[in-house]
């Protein structure tokens, strides 16, 4: 069960308890149940926060690895790819006549190619080597399957 499901269950449980309190003890009691639960939640969350501050995490460096910043060309590439999809849609619905799309499509494709090349150049040699090995391995197993 994920943390989010657990939280949802907890909220439903508290709502149920508050409703029961409301039915048997009056509206005021229901509100008190909510106040109490909220306070418990606050104490627990703030305690976890302080605990996190005070603890030491030896794997922190590893955990932080995926947070490598994106660079501007990633956004530009996504925008160009979106523009190509848009172009297809606009030709399909007649906003751009088939004869007019050629130069725009050529321009967008050239831009996408340039950005892909930039991205490729940015990738570190060891990562490229790793990618080459993965692809070669995949190709080898595919060819083995075909042969067998």
């Amino acid at each position: 069960m994920t943390g989010r499901s657990l939280a949802l269950l907890l909220v439903l449980f508290v709502a149920g308890i508050a409703s029961l309190a409301g039915v048997f003890g009056g509206r005021g009691l229901a509100a008190l149940v909510l106040v109490g639960t909220a306070l418990l939640g606050a104490v627990s969350a703030l305690w976890s926060s302080l605990h996190e501050l005070a603890s030491e995490d030896v794997l922190e460096e590893v955990r932080e690895l995926p947070s490598l910043a994106r660079v501007a060309t990633d956004d530009e590439l996504e925008a160009v790819l979106r523009a190509l999809i848009d172009l297809d849609h606009e030709v399909a619905v007649g906003k751009i006549l088939p004869g007019d799309e050629g130069p725009v499509r050529h321009e967008l494709r050239s831009e996408a190619k340039r950005l892909l090349q930039l991205q490729d150049a940015r990738i570190r040699p060891e990562a490229r080597e790793r990618a080459r090995l993965i692809v070669e391995g995949a190709l080898a197993s595919a060819s083995q399957e075909v042969t067998s």
Binding site: G41, A42, A45, S49, E64
Partner: peptide, 22 residues
Amino acid sequence: GRLRLLVAARHGAYGTVALIAA
């Protein structure tokens, strides 16, 4: 940029939210 501090801040945010609910 420390991840541990971000986690602490996230818990702090939950705590603040719970206090407002109270």
